[in-house]
Amino acid sequence: MGAVVRTLPIRLEGVAFEHGATRLLGPLDLTFEGSQRTAVMGPNGAGKSLLLRLCHGLIAPTAGRVRCGVAGAPTDPRVRRRQAMVFQRPVMLRRSVKANVLYALNRRGIKGRDARSRADEALSMVGLQGLGSRPARVLSGGEQQRLALARAWVLQPEVMFLDEPTSALDPQAAQAVESTIQRFHERGTRIVLTTHSPGQARRLADEIVFMADGGVVERAEAEAFLTRPQSRQGQQFLAGEHTVSPAVHPRREDSHHE
């Protein structure tokens, strides 16, 4: 490994994503920098998950480009090493809780005692200390999501993307996840999360990026957007998010796991 490559700021320049003949996102310009917390909001199909995947380099834009730090692409391993992502339904590897965290460390070349102590630290950070030897797949939904957070945080990324991290959880488990995300931020990790819940956005975000139909409609301070949205779509969304597309369950929104 050479010098540490910074992943921030992340700049999307004229980025668009098309599937077949359908344009799903963009073209848009957007920058994430600083150390604040961003909530990406918007109705189903607005392109929120897509935006996160583009920033994390899981998919490539069909037009424009994503630049991380000075010159890196998000698919560059040195860049992605400084990023982490927590999926709406994270995949638990078929091994123990601790081995799941160690897996992430090993992939970045951290092994042995150093890796074990970092894994223990990450597990305590999310309140899973003592469950290290359990099979990951027997954990409850909330515990699994916290394990995913530990696995993402263990490399102390500059930025963490979270795709509706609590949408599949009951309120108590969701609260535990929220406070964990808050702790990560206090330790210096830039947070970018997608959410449907204005309440969650208020608790976890400093600013809101509001999307609709594959484009960014509004970007504002969280409190400002949540109390006085400027756009018509934003007003409609906050007035009754469930009327936007009532046929689709929120959990299915944008998901690539269905």
Binding site: G57, L58, F87, V91, A104, R107, H257
Partner: peptide
């Protein structure tokens, strides 16, 4: 299909 994004994100090619 199920693992691709997760493994890529964790740094496994």
């Amino acid at each position: 299909e199920e693992y691709r994004e997760q493994l890529t994100s964790l740094g496994a090619g």
